[in-house]
Amino acid sequence: MDVSEILAEHARKQQAITVEKEIPLEVDAGFLTVTDTNPIDEESYKVNLEEYIQSTARDGVQVLISALFSLPTVPSPDGPLAQLPPPTTQLPRAKSLPKPKPLSKWEQFAKAKGISHRKKDRKVWDEEKQQWVNRWGWKGTNKAGEEQWLTEVPQNADIDHDPAKKAREERKARVSKNEKQHEKNMLRAQRAQGSSSAPTDQRKREIDRTLATTRVSTASMGRFDKKLEGEKKLKGVKRKFEAAEVSADTEKLQNMSILSKLDREPATKKAKGGDGVLNVRKAVRAASKGKGSAALAKESGGKKGKKVKR
């Protein structure tokens, strides 16, 4: 049997889809990209630009397509999907990497103890009703105790014992406890992030400041006050002086900032909304008897209307 013909046929087929270049092309299948690092042929570039570009592009695309068609595929409803490898080129991200969410106190505990999270289903099977019902929320099973038409009353119950009310209060207490815990977790997370804008921190700073003020608010400015044990010495604000010699740039910046301040309209004047001689806001208030400019305009407009009628 002569196979040379078959071989020749195969070789011819292969020839149509192979590209020969001096430097092999770099294919980044993840980004569907091919880079041809062969030097540009100056002669053919000058002779016929479009044709040259198209022929190089064809060669490059042929290599890329061959690489893509040789990738493993998985079937999908729309047809086979080629599995792309991760890209080799590194592109900068558009946004920074997301920060890991801070753990709640329970999550920390569970992690330390090795307790794995088990997600509860939203719905539970109700044997009586023979259907799926919400665990909480609308017609939730957690409200079952509040909706019974008949409840057993214990022997030693108070005279005003209301089982439905009691169940409801218990549920509400659980909800509020959860909310409190959530709030605390948020606060802890905020503090862990290092931001000092947490409400408790602010409060602490306020108290410290008030304490410092009261300590120097006696006639002797706190000199003859009784000292408590462990009380720290008050530190005053130290005066700071600029260096005598600064670089020309900083000096320029300082002076420019002063000049720009001088140039600006003062904030108090701006708020008053006048040129200093007449306080417009005050005048409007006086003229409208405290009702504002809109009322004043309405009033004058109304008068005009009446005149026309007459």
């Binding site: 490059g60 397509i65 999907l81």
Partner: peptide
């Protein structure tokens, strides 16, 4: 970054060529 692509959907190419170095 994508992990799979439908090969029949590859329809066009953007080619960037430089002039001679």
């Amino acid at each position: 970054e994508i992990d799979g692509i439908h090969l029949a959907g590859l329809g066009h190419v953007v080619s960037v060529t430089l002039g001679p170095t």
